[in-house]
């Protein structure tokens, strides 16, 4: 599972920076996009194996990315959200996300769950 390409879609550089440190420690190649538009551009040229997407992005709903990411060849999409409520969870799963991580996901747990989806 080493050297998978993971796309982190998150508009806060502090959070995406922490994700990069964490995911790179597990030998994943990490790309970061801060908006829906940037993610779509990136996914066209360098398809991620797995994408972690924040729900509220400056130019729209992160869930709008699920279908185009799958169409581009991305295997797994996981939602990252600050909302710990069943409605949000249900909405993410209904949109095609494989899993929903509520921020802050404990570091070790995030790595384990990402590894499980990549296996």
């Amino acid at each position: 599972m080493s050297s998978s390409h993971v796309l982190v879609v998150e508009d806060n550089a502090l959070v995406s920076g922490a994700m990069r440190v964490l995911l790179e420690s597990a030998d994943h190649r990490v790309s970061i996009a801060a908006s829906v538009a940037e993610s779509l551009g990136l996914a066209r040229t360098d398809v991620p194996t797995l994408a972690l997407i924040d729900l509220s992005l400056p130019d729209g709903d992160g869930l709008a990315l699920v279908a185009p990411l799958f169409a581009a060849g991305c295997k797994t999409v996981i939602a990252l959200t600050g909302h710990d409520d069943p409605e949000t969870r249900a909405r993410c799963l209904a949109s095609g996300c494989a899993d929903v991580f509520v921020k802050p996901v404990p570091a070790r747990e995030l790595l384990n769950r990402v590894a499980r989806w990549l296996a």
Binding site: N12, L14, V15, A18, V21, L22, G82, K103, P104, R108
Partner: peptide
């Protein structure tokens, strides 16, 4: 919540 999340994640790393 957002910056706090980053602080906690870095510390957990």
């Amino acid at each position: 919540r957002t910056p706090l999340t980053a602080v906690i994640t870095h510390a957990e790393i």
